[in-house]
Design a protein around this nucleic acid. Structure first.
Lengths: 205, 205
DNA sequence: TAGATTGTTAATCGATTAACAATC
DNA sequence: TAGATTGTTAATCGATTAACAATC
């Protein structure tokens, strides 16, 4: 068995990728681990070490070709393709996600939106007709969705997660302020603004 | 100099706190490091170690009083008070944050919203009149705001951050998909849904 | 008391950094 | 060539875990 890559390294790759694509859009051709590190507040040694887990992408004396390294990272992270994504919850957060146009260029495409509010079901959002949350399993079965975002109230999040997992979803981005419990083959990331804020107030006086 | 607490420990405290408050609302009185750990997917030893950095909050044989430990964690994280928060950007994300009612019970209170769009300036949002982003410094000077959330397009985020820092902001929650560069006395947390999604697709096949 | 669980220590495990030969 | 920067190794540093005496 090849030794597996630490998750903490995987977590930094999307950050490298975002910075590289930003540089690319500025018209830059090459960068170095040092420059990238300064921009991100990460040591140059760490960036080189992280990348070396996957191959040799740079040239001594020159650095990294930005387009080439971007493409390599996209492959590694499997965002050299487009993932279909379902959103559950059409409140303010769900609406924001549905209207966000930053997904498509970075590997994701919203394909379906659910809500449990009968007043919202059937209405339009971001080019989609909102579907009834009770139909999650049924609707996802005929789709290719394995990534979902949960933007429902905390009280409903766990139940929604379970329906999504039953329907074959393997990666969940959870905006509800509650910890989700899922099986070991399902990946979950949590976004809770309060958690992030509380992590900073500790350092304030 | 007392040895400083690792930031990774600080990062887990808000998660413990959220789970404890959840249990409290369920009417529970006590819990154990084991139960808490199972709920969060964290080892019991780690939870005890983390807490022991700050004092002794439990009782052998019994565990932790939920209300007591919650209060202690609130004090440690300095959310036993209410922090005034400014939002910059009144698009979908800013709107969602402005209308979110989960802040007040957890230590934060929105007090001001800015946007640079002349069509939005002067209109109402979440009980506030949206102010012109050019007035950030001026408006914050007479306020008590040291925490802010950035919800503007990527291209404007760095400039907004600099204005906030100039106005005395020490903690920034950044929703723009770009890395912010700030001084060492300013804390930044980033929320970018795509980054979180890309971190999970690595593991999908 | 017997059972449970803490707080803490020491051991293990893992991540980061410093340094440098290789080489563009 | 001289200067720059990679990829990698070994050393350092830090975080997690296992184990258990203390004790409720």
């Amino acid at each position: 068995m090849p030794k597996s890559i630490p998750d903490i390294v995987i977590g930094r790759l999307p950050i490298y990728l975002r910075a590289l694509q930003h540089m690319g859009m500025e018209g830059r051709q090459v960068t170095s681990s040092q420059e990238l590190g300064e921009r991100l507040g990460i040591s140059a040694a760490q960036i080189r070490k992280d990348l070396s887990q996957f191959g040799e992408f740079g040239k001594q004396g020159t650095g990294y070709n930005i387009d080439f390294l971007s493409k390599q990272l996209q492959e590694i992270l499997k965002v050299d393709r487009v993932w279909d994504v379902a959103i559950v919850g059409a409140g303010d957060i769900g609406k924001g996600l549905a209207n966000y146009n930053g997904f498509s260029s970075r590997g994701f495409r919203i394909v379906m939106i659910f809500d449990s509010n009968p007043n919202l079901v059937g209405t339009q959002l971001g080019g989609f007709t909102i579907k009834d949350s009770r139909l999650i399993k049924q609707e996802l079965e005929s789709s290719n969705v394995r990534v979902a975002m949960i933007a429902v109230p905390a009280a409903q999040a766990q139940a929604v997660a379970e329906q999504l997992v039953e329907a074959g979803v393997k990666a969940i981005l959870n905006y509800a302020p509650v910890n989700l419990t899922v099986g070991p083959d399902v990946h979950v990331q949590h976004i809770d603004p309060t958690i992030h804020l509380q992590r900073m107030t500790y350092y304030l006086d």
